[in-house]
């Protein structure tokens, strides 16, 4: 099995960082980063041996998603996006680039929109994660979902979950005050089908009612 150093975490213990700052990331995934940052004169193996106890790569992670705590067995290098799509079968969140360049993977963490491909699942424990699957209340769609339907804010639908999650946050942030502002604050979400004017119409409608 591959090993990852985890200086502060006893083997097997689920990790519960308080926040998603870089510091806690370093704590949880120190081995991974340590490898990359190790000075050339210290080989990775020496570095691991010198500084850390090692843990099995796969650990148990608890993620609170759409109000429910779910457990997965995954390595610390698993992104939140892959945890959702590949470990929890929450495939509504899409992967368009895996590099923070397209917004297809947008989810809410503690009410803020983030690109789930740019964060590790291990860093998001203990937080409220909301995905597109958690937006509707039973059969009642969220007003943003309704507005996307009404204004045809999509074609293929692949960027759509990300657009809707972004749209909801955009309104909440107070960044949908005008069409121009909406366009600017929705520009992190690419749509190759080119549904932009319809997306703006949908956000406008929801912002108008908010």
């Amino acid at each position: 099995m591959s090993t990852f150093s985890s200086p502060d975490t006893p083997e097997g213990q689920p990790v519960r960082p308080e926040d998603g700052t870089r510091r806690s990331f370093m704590k949880q995934a120190g081995g991974l980063l340590g490898l990359a940052l190790a000075p050339p004169f210290v080989g990775p193996a020496e570095r691991l041996a010198a500084y850390s106890k090692t843990v099995e790569g796969v650990t148990s992670l608890q993620l609170k998603i759409n109000g429910t705590v779910r457990s997965i067995q995954a390595e610390p290098r698993v992104t939140l996006l892959d945890a959702l799509r590949e470990y929890l079968d929450l495939t509504g969140t899409k992967k368009g680039c895996d590099h923070g360049q397209c917004g297809a993977c947008t989810v809410h963490v503690d009410g803020r929109r983030i690109n789930s491909c740019l964060t590790l699942a291990v860093m998001q424990q203990g937080k409220e994660i909301t995905t597109i699957e958690g937006l509707a209340q039973g059969d009642a769609l969220h007003p943003m979902q309704e507005a996307f339907l009404k204004h045809d804010g999509f074609q293929c639908g692949y960027c759509t979950p990300g657009q809707i999650m972004s749209g909801v946050a955009c309104v909440k942030e107070g960044h949908a005050g005008s069409d121009d502002q909406t366009r600017e604050w929705m520009s992190g979400n690419l749509c190759r089908c080119g549904a932009y004017p319809n997306i703006v119409a949908a956000v406008r409608e929801v912002a108008g009612k908010a």
Binding site: L90, T91, G92, T93, K94, T131, I132, E133, L135, A136, L141, Q145, F148, L149, K150, D152, F154, G157, Y158, T160, P161, I164
Partner: peptide, 16 residues
């Protein structure tokens, strides 16, 4: 008409 597959697309149910 609104898209008949629209609901699946806005709720994340549509499977690619």
């Amino acid at each position: 008409l609104n898209r008949v597959d629209g609901r699946d697309k806005v709720t994340g149910k549509a499977k690619y």
